[in-house]
């Protein structure tokens, strides 16, 4: 909770509906797909207990309040404001306000954050202390985050066409540079799904039976885990990490998490499991793959 230099009303003095686009929840609409040409008008309704907001914030009846929303993509970071609605003197005690932002697909990258604020508009001069006095002072705010790219998970996953690229034209490509174990995993690992591959495309579009889709993703998961563990096993500079912080997860921390989850025995230290992993990778690579198949229940679930 942030301490402000003035009083603010209780959060529940403003009720906000979910964000919708043409009646569809915004998150659901984004899941249906978007690109740089997409234009979305996202709306939400606010029910504002104007009298309570004024009372609890110490405002006079003459003070104007302003309702507005804005969006910001976590990739491009630039904020874009939507409409502004004024709640001036004479507003009803309970006001229903619709706020709207027009989201330009050209701005989207990473995650999409939408924020709605009720701020102080024009004010009458006042002497009271601990009452908002500057126009623009935030009285109430609510922020909502929506994933728009595969950047929200542990590994960034991108769907793309391999045609015209120098990549082998396989089903997917796991791009993982060697070394730099302290670097953020998000910037150094990337899973590319080849949408030119009929099987991958079918899995992405869910046009085939669920069992088929499940088998595709299980194969991908096995490949990712095997790739990361193999990199860790082969690199003498790799060392397991202790615990995790709130900071961005590093490649080393990601590999350590994989070792703990998919390779270590119950109760076994990650560093000890790494020793076994290195032995298997060098001397019994087929066994390593089989162990990972077992631990990941490869082709052993969701297949009817």
């Amino acid at each position: 909770m942030r301490a402000l230099p003035y009083r603010t009303p209780a959060f529940e003095s403003v009720l906000a509906s979910p964000w919708v686009v043409d009646g569809v929840p915004l998150g659901e609409r984004l899941d249906q797909g978007w690109d740089y040409q997409t234009q979305l008008a996202a709306r939400r309704r606010l029910t504002i207990d104007v009298a309570r907001v004024r009372r609890e914030a110490g405002l006079t009846m003459a003070d104007e309040m302003v309702v507005s929303s804005r969006y910001r993509a976590t990739g491009s970071l630039i904020r874009h404001r939507g409409n502004m609605e004024s709640l001036a003197a004479g507003s009803p005690a309970i006001a229903d306000v619709e706020t709207e932002v027009r989201i330009d697909g050209a701005d989207l990258a990473g995650a999409l954050e939408l924020e709605t604020t009720v701020t102080l508009g024009s004010v009458t001069p006042r002497q009271q202390t601990f009452v908002a006095r500057r126009p623009g002072s935030i009285l109430w705010r609510r922020s909502d985050l929506f994933a728009v790219e595969g950047g929200g998970g542990l590994l960034p996953v991108a769907r793309t066409s391999f045609a015209g690229s120098a990549l082998p034209k396989g089903a997917w490509f796991i791009s993982a540079g060697t070394g730099e174990w302290d670097a953020p995993a998000m910037g150094h690992l990337l899973v590319l799904l080849n949408e030119d591959n009929p099987g991958v495309l079918a899995a992405l579009e869910r046009t085939l039976a669920g069992e088929f889709t499940s088998a595709v993703w299980q194969a991908l998961a096995l490949d990712i885990v095997h790739t990361v563990l193999s990199l860790a096993a082969d690199d003498p500079d790799f060392a397991t990490t202790d615990g995790e912080t709130d900071d961005e997860i590093s490649k080393a921390a990601l590999a350590t998490r994989f070792i703990r989850t998919w390779y270590a025995h119950p109760g076994e230290e990650a560093a000890d499991a790494l020793g076994r992993l290195r032995y298997d990778a060098q001397n019994e690579p087929a066994r390593l793959r089989a162990v990972l198949q077992e631990r990941l229940h490869f082709l052993g679930r969701d297949l009817g």
């Binding site: 740089y36 040409q37 769907r159 066409s161 120098a166 990549l167 791009s175 590319l192």
Partner: peptide, 14 residues
């Protein structure tokens, strides 16, 4: 130099 790259899946002209 020859290098590995990809394009975004859609939304513009490469």
């Amino acid at each position: 130099q020859e290098s590995g790259y990809v394009f975004a899946a859609a939304g513009g002209d490469r």
